[in-house]
């Protein structure tokens, strides 16, 4: 990394750093605005008078969300579903991606299975039949209704499979000669070598589970069992298009911009805390180099 010290390169670095930082600021400013709104009084936020600094500073919006009686339950449900869903999902993704990353000649039905999964990505039966399946399996109101229906994520399987493909075949062949079975090869060679990719895919899966709210709305019959994202969706009533004319109380509740803003931070905080931790695995080539030596 310290190999390029030419003057042109130094100038490039300065320009590059400056531009990227500017871009990052461009992403940060709206976030600061939303943070300011979330820390402002209800009246100022609703009247849209908040810029980048809170007006009439208050923590009310956060207290209102966290003070919801189902908040802790929802947090637990969300952690359970994200944890369990990601672990099981990753297991499934890795198990499926490994054989699919083989050459056609060593796995004859590879083509068939690839398309089998692609079809599930492109086509969907729709809400009604999916609901009927979940209902007939007796999963309504259970954590499994939030995990199982979307567990086969073709997009991530294909992505993982392509990352696996970049791993040199020689490693696997030598392991086979040492008598390792496929599971050992996957666990001992593929996963460690593809660590940045595994981290990426786990991140996608976690974010997906953490943010998904519609399934909670449909498959869980009681607010006590909602995951956090579903609960956050409901703390402020969504605009209800079935009522032609609302009333003052409903609108009062609906239009709490500060609360909505605070929910972004409450909802995103756990992911943002995990993210830097995952970034540790984005370490260039160390593992690959180590094995190759």
């Amino acid at each position: 990394m310290t190999r390029y010290k030419s003057p042109q390169h130094r100038i490039f670095c300065y320009v590059n750093n400056t531009l990227l930082v500017l871009l990052a600021v461009l992403c940060l400013v709206p976030m600061i605005h939303i943070l300011a709104v979330s820390l402002s009084s209800k009246a100022a936020a609703n009247a849209n008078l908040v810029g980048l600094w809170p007006v009439d500073f208050t923590l009310d919006s956060y207290l209102k969300t966290i003070g919801n009686r189902n908040f802790v339950d929802a947090m637990i449900t969300s952690f359970l579903r994200t944890g369990l869903g990601t672990v099981l999902g990753m297991l499934l993704v890795c198990l499926a991606a490994y054989p699919l990353s083989k050459e056609n000649k060593s796995f004859r039905q590879r083509g068939f299975y690839s398309w089998f999964f692609i079809i599930t990505m492109v086509f969907s039966g729709g809400l009604i039949p999916s609901y009927i399946v979940v209902q007939k399996l007796g999963l309504i109101n259970s954590l499994w209704a939030l995990i199982l229906p979307g567990i086969v994520n073709t997009w991530l399987i294909i992505l993982m499979m392509n990352f696996f493909k970049t791993i040199p075949k020689e490693l696997e062949e030598s392991a086979h000669m040492d008598g390792a079975d496929p599971f050992t090869v996957l666990g001992r060679i593929y996963l460690p070598l593809a660590l940045p990719s595994v981290a990426t895919i786990a991140l996608f899966m976690m974010v997906g589970h953490w943010n998904s709210w519609f399934d909670g709305l449909i498959y869980i019959n009681d607010a006590k069992g909602y995951p956090l994202s579903t609960l956050l969706q409901t703390i402020i009533v969504q605009q209800d298009f079935t009522k032609i004319t609302p009333d003052a109380a409903t609108m009062e509740n609906l239009s709490q911009r500060a609360v909505k803003a605070s929910q972004i931070f409450i909802g995103a905080a756990p992911i943002l805390l995990v993210y830097p931790f995952l970034q540790r695995y984005f370490v260039k080539g160390i593992v690959i180099g180590a094995v190759k030596e």
Binding site: L92, G126, P129, I151, I157
Partner: peptide, 15 residues
């Protein structure tokens, strides 16, 4: 993965 896809993806295709 194949079994789960059959139940939760292919079965609803009836819809």
């Amino acid at each position: 993965a194949v079994l789960l896809a059959l139940v939760f993806n292919y079965l609803p295709f009836a819809g």
